[in-house]
Design a protein around this nucleic acid. Sequence first.
DNA 1: AGGAAAATGAAATTCATTTTCAATTAGTTC
DNA 2: GAACTAATTGAAAATGAATTTCATTTTCCT
Lengths: 149, 149
Amino acid sequence: MDRQVSEKKEQLRAFLKERGFKSTRQRDIIAGQFLRCGEHLTAEELYKQISRTHREIGFTTVYRTLKLLSKSGLATERVFADNLTRYEPLSSEDHHDHLICLRCGSITEFENPKMEKLQKRIAEEFGFNTVTHKMELYGYCRMCRKPDK
Amino acid sequence: MDRQVSEKKEQLRAFLKERGFKSTRQRDIIAGQFLRCGEHLTAEELYKQISRTHREIGFTTVYRTLKLLSKSGLATERVFADNLTRYEPLSSEDHHDHLICLRCGSITEFENPKMEKLQKRIAEEFGFNTVTHKMELYGYCRMCRKPDK
DNA sequence: AGGAAAATGAAATTCATTTTCAATTAGTTC
DNA sequence: GAACTAATTGAAAATGAATTTCATTTTCCT
């Protein structure tokens, strides 16, 4: 198994123990699959993936485990224009933004320090104390953009 | 009545006529209230406002009229972190972004050409053809930010 | 006024998300 | 390792915003 993945699973186990929660076979399987996959998945999608090999694991548990991963800091929830809640593994504090293709639905991450600074500057102009932000660019990716233009 | 508002109501009437739709008392009242108010309202909120003075107008009609206003270009739909669909009057093509207070829920609009340019530049780096974007800064407004810090 | 097409509003439906609850399981403690 | 307590599981039900249905009413044309 992936070094990264087992490390994070360990982190989860620590988090559970600390809070008096329990490590279970299901949580292990779900976290493993989620971390390995590493995409922006909905609970539904992850459930479908997992139930291929583990028909006994229910949707509810997948859903709850994703929530748990979010609380433990191993994942974040995101909602894009399609209004579905997606989960994404969180390495550390790499805050990044997204490019979303309107045709194929692909989600590309990016990070830009200038953007961050500019955001902070704008917020300050308004006396705002920024905690977090959301920035999504919707359009057509390299593969999907029209041949013309 | 506000010059601006009646002008826009006229725009709506023209839009309806062009498409073979009908101007109705309800649509007039709903559009009027919405345009006058000018906030980021949910269908529910607008419905409550209107039903104070017009108990006979149903939620469904308010909802449908807001959709109609969006289609006619007089409003846009927006979804913030609370996952409710809000409607906002649209003057022309002023694309702006939002500062949202996590405590009081106030929504402040802003516009920044540098931001727009930066977005375009980033998108291009990834071969992306940007159509639209979404940018929200969440934090605490001047009134709500902690005294310390 | 008459008639066709659209609009209305209450109620029903949808659909993702969240909660409930009885049965099961994990992780102590003796 | 057995017993116990609290957490977990999974199926089913509940929730809640958004949307659709449908019988009735209204608009707008002639």
